[in-house]
Design a protein around this nucleic acid. Structure first.
Lengths: 188, 188
DNA sequence: ATTTTTATTGAACAAGTGTATAATAAAATT
DNA sequence: AATTTTATTATACACTTGTTCAATAAAAAT
């Protein structure tokens, strides 16, 4: 595939910067395309050449954050089988640290007015990692896709509750909580 | 509190009907306020007197569906402790039957372009029921809000995966799957 | 039945949306 | 360095949005 035109890269970068700048002043849903383009000094027609709405721009930005979740955080721990809870170390899953690091963006991702698409991106990322984890280590006959969807969204449920409490607890405490919840199921 | 004006009730009803009618032809996100009001033969100004955007109208509608989830389905089973998985009967949780019943609406609720608000309504409903369940029967020292958020969203994770497969499996099979996943955690 | 209250309407407004077109300028190709 | 390709721009268009206002009509209160 041929590499993208320099002008496109520059335009998108400028728009990204403008978005981040505007997000300091108002919620994502309140930012109009016109305002974005005025701020970025980019023609409105150019915007529509690359995106459909302001939310698409944030989605593109969030996808970059998603690669950080996989590359920097989850990847080095993938050798540990997450669902074998007995041997689960709190440091196994780094998702809470990741969310804490990008707290500013996850306040947007978890806000009720934004489209579901961001949540789905996050869900799919965690889901794929766990699904792969199950494929490698799990011999159970239970539907693997359901199993990973269950487990992945359970963790995101904690993230939602964490967000609701405005990320008060430190990420390490969230990890510890996850471990104790997983262990609780065994102790019953 | 004084009861609402008959005209308001009539207007809202007409708008609801128009929404349902339009949803047969196009996705929620593609329906404009103007189109809605043209269809309902309601003045656009009147719409803005009650709602802010088309999505709010669907939210109002979805809230009615939510009461069905609590009243008709979950309420009669609340005496059974859901998290005590050993004694969990597939019929304990009726959420999958509820979703199957309102399949048409949940295709919208789980679609990626709609706002998170519908998902949050659903989450809070299930979350509250499980939270109450834990309060009644659980003596564990684990953060109750986190525990219920974890468990509630885990179930919704299955619903998301179910939706992704376009609700192929029957609800009874989803119940059985939930039970086997919960039991698997114990059998490890 | 008459009066009072208030929801709905129609009209008008500035601003935003989404799309199309020709002119321009910047990058890629030769 | 000259040429070709294409992203960006300025402008214009019909349409939607969100709000305001006085006039009207429907419901509630007397």
């Amino acid at each position: 595939m041929k590499k993208t035109d320099l002008r496109v890269i520059k335009t998108k970068e400028t728009l990204h910067e403008a978005l981040i700048h505007l997000l300091n002043g108002k919620p994502l849903t309140d930012i109009s395309v016109t305002e974005m383009c005025r701020e970025a000094r980019v023609n409105r027609g150019t915007f529509y050449l690359h995106y459909g709405k302001v939310e698409d721009l944030f989605e593109e930005y969030f996808k970059e954050i998603m690669t950080d979740l996989t590359d920097s955080y989850m990847e080095p721990y993938r050798h540990v089988h997450i669902l074998k809870t007995q041997q689960l170390d709190p440091s196994t899953i780094r998702i809470f640290h990741h969310i804490e690091k990008y707290k500013k963006f996850y306040r947007i991702v978890f806000s009720k007015s934004v489209p579901m698409s961001y949540y789905y991106l996050l869900f799919e990322q965690v889901n794929n990692l766990l699904n792969e984890d199950i494929r490698k280590y799990d011999l159970s006959s239970i539907d693997r896709d359901m199993m990973s969807a269950y487990q992945a969204n359970a963790i995101l449920g904690m993230a939602i509750e964490w967000h609701r409490k405005d990320f008060q607890q430190p990420a390490t405490e969230m990890n510890a909580l996850l471990v104790s919840i997983l262990n609780y199921h065994l102790q019953q």
